[in-house]
Design a protein around this nucleic acid. Structure first.
Lengths: 341, 341
DNA sequence: TTGAAAGCGCTACCAG
DNA sequence: CTGGTAGCGCTTTCAA
């Protein structure tokens, strides 16, 4: 019986039309070696006429690896993640690599699926920028031998680089700053994933407040990451009857939501209550009032990650390194001296 | 000489370890047919122990198609695009499909690359949500026989569905509304891609203004899409000496940037100048003042696209359809009666 | 400078 | 219920 013949163009079709072998077509399409320029153009013409597009799966399979950078983030909607993604993408494209992104939505079940996908795709490198993470998955990635970088989570392993931001420092700076403005009653608004085991910001917040003003009783609130989540957390806060003079938010995105709710309730910022964020996303500068926050250099982080995962400048990839980034306080209009009452 | 043996696990390795054939392993891994439950668990165990991850490229190649939904957007940073992406992703995952996104950043060169990528990946379906587009590319996609949907651009073709929003209607509603508030001097702020041949919103704006108030001389400004772009366009507007009582923005994202610049210059919204957006992204509700805008049902659009590209309910895929969405005006706090001066 | 042919890892068809 | 095997489309030696 006849072999199944798909309609899809393939190398063979192009080769036939150009009157050459598939090897030659392959060489032309890869700008490889020295193909006689006349043959070359003949092949190109044939490919064009047939509207031919190389099958990337076949290509990756034959090559044994793909020219793809995998990126996994918790929440692309949050500009913080997007900014890192954007940098990584630019770096990748500059090297002729394609990019595949996956969104976990903070769900570890989805994170698992995403990791599987990336490994299944045999990506050339993997960047994992998520807040949720299990030791188990780190082992899986490490075992896959794919050069990878984790942001904010886990510890260095073979072929895995670790990037961390010194949150303690960032939070401490914020708390001292607020303390200097006379704030004693403070609240922290996090998102659910910061309430897990890796809640460095939250813990440091509690420690810092206790150290600065021993008598204070800091409170913690949380909602899902995002504008709505911030708003919701703020509502809970207000409904609880707690009346802080300052609210520290786990990130800028949520802070904008928090401010919205406060405004709604007739509270003025910073007159009645000060608000701070974290990340220093573009929006922090555009919201009203503009947001006091802690700057995290996302572009720099993106470049570092790319470099360690796929860059040319990585000799010690076998080792696995840890890189710590220092954040800085950026004072804007959402904070002021503590209201006295 | 010996064959090149890669370290990467493959079906064979699992099969050997489990003492079965690759066929059986394949069946197990695909939850296929009836494999004796004892064999099944033996295979699963072996795969687990070997830390085995199926090579998706090989899979797609063998199957002749991939279970991937391709999505191309102009600017993932703009929540408008993100919202559609999110819906598509959810629908895809619900069907067990993976998703690959590509960002064109409004560059047609990148759009070309993205289309090539998707075709090369032999995606099961393709959603193209971009503002930049060339007839040529539409033909390419159409020729690839991949079920596709274009948002906002092009015309229905074989195996291509077209989704459009009736911008004319949206802009008209906005202009009439502003006109009723007494606004005569209006400006339109677009982004660069809306200045191309497909600038429906801009054209309609001009027409509507001319119709409502024949004497007025509407002006057009533009910047790149985004917070900064909006701000920049607003700055140009102010520097030009033009003093509109209302500014219509091509989308909410830019409107937020515009409002920021106006505020900076001491102008109050809406007392001194009214501002409107388009899309009704979440942020429109959270910015200050909240933004009067035109609602585009992004979730609905996402579902429609998915349905037409990969849904079960598409019998007439060969035909190619056009679907038009009706937008609605949402009045909030950024608009008021025209300042008289 | 070009062609022939052996895989890459997996699926699916055909036997058993 | 399981095994054997022929491809999927492309890259990559090895020869010519």
């Amino acid at each position: 019986m006849r072999k199944r013949r798909s309609l899809a163009m393939n190398l063979d079709a192009v080769a036939q039309r150009a009157g050459v072998s598939t090897s030659t077509v392959s060489r032309v399409l890869n700008n490889l070696e020295i193909v006689k320029s006349s043959t070359r153009s003949r092949v190109l013409k044939a490919a064009e006429e047939l509207n031919y597009h190389p099958n990337l799966h076949a290509r990756s399979l034959a090559r044994g690896k793909s020219r793809i950078l995998g990126i996994i983030v918790s929440n692309m909607e949050n500009p913080f993640f997007f900014d890192i993604y954007r940098t990584l993408e630019a770096d990748a494209h500059a090297q002729g690599l394609e990019v595949v992104v996956a969104n976990t939505d903070y769900r570890s079940e989805q994170l698992l699926a995403s990791v599987q996908l990336m490994i299944g795709l045999r990506v050339a490198g993997l960047a994992v920028i998520v807040s949720e993470m299990e030791q188990h998955l780190i082992q899986t990635v490490s075992g896959s031998r794919i050069p990878a970088a984790f942001y904010d989570v886990g510890t260095p392993q073979k072929n895995i680089t670790n990037i961390r931001v010194d949150y303690r420092k960032g939070i401490k700076k914020t708390v001292s700053y607020l303390n200097a403005l006379g704030h004693k009653r403070m609240a922290f608004v996090g998102h659910h994933s910061t309430l897990g085991p890796i809640s460095e910001r939250r813990k440091t917040f509690l420690e810092s407040v206790h150290r600065c003003s021993p008598g204070a009783e800091p409170r913690i609130f949380a909602g899902p990451d995002g504008l709505d989540g911030g708003r919701q957390a703020a509502r809970e806060l207000l409904e609880s009857g707690f009346r802080p003079t300052a609210i520290l938010c786990v990130n800028d995105f949520m802070a904008v939501g928090v401010m919205r709710e406060l405004r709604e309730e007739g509270l003025q910022i910073p007159r009645d209550v000060s608000v701070t964020g974290f990340d220093n996303i573009k929006l922090a500068e555009f919201c009203s009032p503009s947001l006091t926050t802690v700057h995290i250099p996302r572009e720099q982080i993106g470049h570092i990650i790319f470099d360690h995962v796929l860059g040319n400048s990585r000799e010690e990839r076998e080792v696995g390194r840890e890189i710590v980034i220092d954040p800085e306080l950026v004072v804007r209009d959402s904070t002021g001296v503590a209201a006295k009452n």
